[in-house]
Structure formats: C-alpha cells, structure tokens
Amino acid sequence: MTVNEAAAVDGQLEEENIYSIIQLVKEGIRFHVFKLIMEQSPYSITEWSNFLHLSERTMLRYKNENKSFDPIYSEKIMEISLLQNYGKKVFGSEENFNVWLHSTNIALGGITPKDLLDNSFGIRLLKDELTRIAHGILA
C-alpha cells in the first residue's frame, strides 16, 4: 500500500493535500484500498455501486481481479471520503454526521443529503451546506 493509499484509508488525506489526492486518483484506487475505505464508511457495497454508477457485478469483478478503479471512479471515491471526513469534523462525530446524512433536509429542498452523493454537483452542494453549518449559518 502506498503512502497516499494509507493516508486515504486512515482519513488523513484532506483537501490541503490536493497533489497527493490528484496522484492517487490518477493511479486509480485499488479495490483492496477501496474495501478499507468502504469498511470505514457507513455505506454498503450496494450504496457505493449506486454512488459510482457501477453495477454490483462490476464491483465484484474489480474485487476478484483486484483491479484499480478508473480515475473517474477513484475521484468519486475520494470526493465522498473527503466529504465524510469533513462531516465528522463539523458534527463532532461520525454518528452525528450519519444522522444528518439520513435526515430529510429543508435547506436541500426536502432531500436527504445521502441522496446527493451520486454526482459531483450534489457532493459540492453538501460540502457547501456543511460549511454553512460549521459557521453557524442555518437555513
């Protein structure tokens, strides 16, 4: 496991380490590293396959062949992982953040935040909302 992969698994890659993140995305996240990231997240393999727009069968093929995800999927994995780390900081715990992720949110038009994790625009919207929460600006 590379230094960047280990940092990603440990939740130590932050947006400040953008060059490390870019390198990791370009190389592609290997499935066994993704598995460790997934195990630390509150999301099932089914949810991850929905977020990444990959079938579960394709995910199993990545697993069986220990393939690296293409950069487009690696980028999405990192975006969700970074958002998870940020959310834990904003809410003070993973548990509190996960409650927020699964709750209907008026500021997001009545959508649960988790439903926005399947595209970059939704992830950006959630990051912006977390920043507002961190600064005490509630809808």
Score class of each variant (00 low, 15 high):
107 A>I: 02
40 Q>F: 04
84 Q>L: 15
103 S>E: 13
134 A>F: 14
12 Q>T: 01
96 N>F: 08
119 N>Q: 02
1 M>N: 05
129 E>M: 06
128 D>A: 09
109 G>A: 10
48 W>A: 02
80 I>C: 11
53 H>M: 00
118 D>R: 01
34 F>C: 01
51 F>N: 02
74 S>W: 09
136 G>I: 11
97 F>T: 04
84 Q>D: 11
63 K>G: 02
34 F>N: 02
92 G>Y: 14
42 P>T: 12
65 E>D: 08
17 N>K: 12
29 I>C: 05
73 Y>D: 03
109 G>M: 13
16 E>Y: 10
33 V>N: 07
52 L>S: 05
18 I>M: 08
73 Y>I: 00
106 I>C: 05
114 K>D: 09
66 N>G: 03
113 P>H: 15
89 K>V: 14
103 S>T: 15
60 L>F: 15
135 H>D: 14
65 E>R: 13
9 V>F: 08
47 E>D: 07
8 A>K: 06
95 E>Y: 14
58 T>Y: 08
85 N>D: 10
7 A>S: 11
122 G>P: 05
122 G>Q: 08
7 A>T: 05
139 A>V: 15
116 L>C: 00
69 F>K: 09
137 I>W: 15
90 V>M: 04
102 H>T: 11
60 L>K: 15
135 H>V: 13
102 H>F: 05
82 L>G: 04
17 N>I: 02
55 S>R: 02
99 V>E: 13
139 A>Y: 14
5 E>C: 07
50 N>A: 06
80 I>N: 06
63 K>L: 09
73 Y>K: 13
75 E>I: 00
65 E>S: 00
15 E>W: 15
100 W>E: 00
70 D>N: 02
60 L>V: 04
131 T>N: 13
48 W>L: 04
17 N>P: 00
132 R>G: 01
71 P>R: 07
95 E>S: 15
41 S>P: 04
59 M>E: 03
114 K>V: 15
36 L>R: 15
26 K>L: 05
78 M>E: 07
13 L>W: 12
1 M>K: 05
114 K>W: 02
88 K>F: 08
125 L>H: 09
15 E>S: 12
37 I>N: 13
8 A>T: 06
107 A>P: 03
116 L>W: 10
42 P>M: 10
8 A>N: 04
122 G>V: 08
57 R>N: 12
47 E>R: 07
33 V>W: 05
40 Q>E: 11
113 P>D: 12
52 L>H: 01
80 I>F: 13
56 E>S: 08
78 M>K: 09
56 E>Q: 15
49 S>N: 07
61 R>C: 00
12 Q>A: 03
77 I>Y: 03
128 D>Y: 07
43 Y>N: 06
71 P>N: 10
35 K>W: 04
123 I>D: 03
43 Y>D: 09
56 E>A: 04
25 V>Y: 01
94 E>H: 10
28 G>V: 01
80 I>S: 09
9 V>W: 11
117 L>N: 01
114 K>R: 12
53 H>D: 02
82 L>Q: 11
126 L>N: 10
29 I>Q: 06
134 A>P: 01
96 N>C: 05
2 T>S: 13
128 D>M: 10
98 N>H: 15
105 N>L: 00
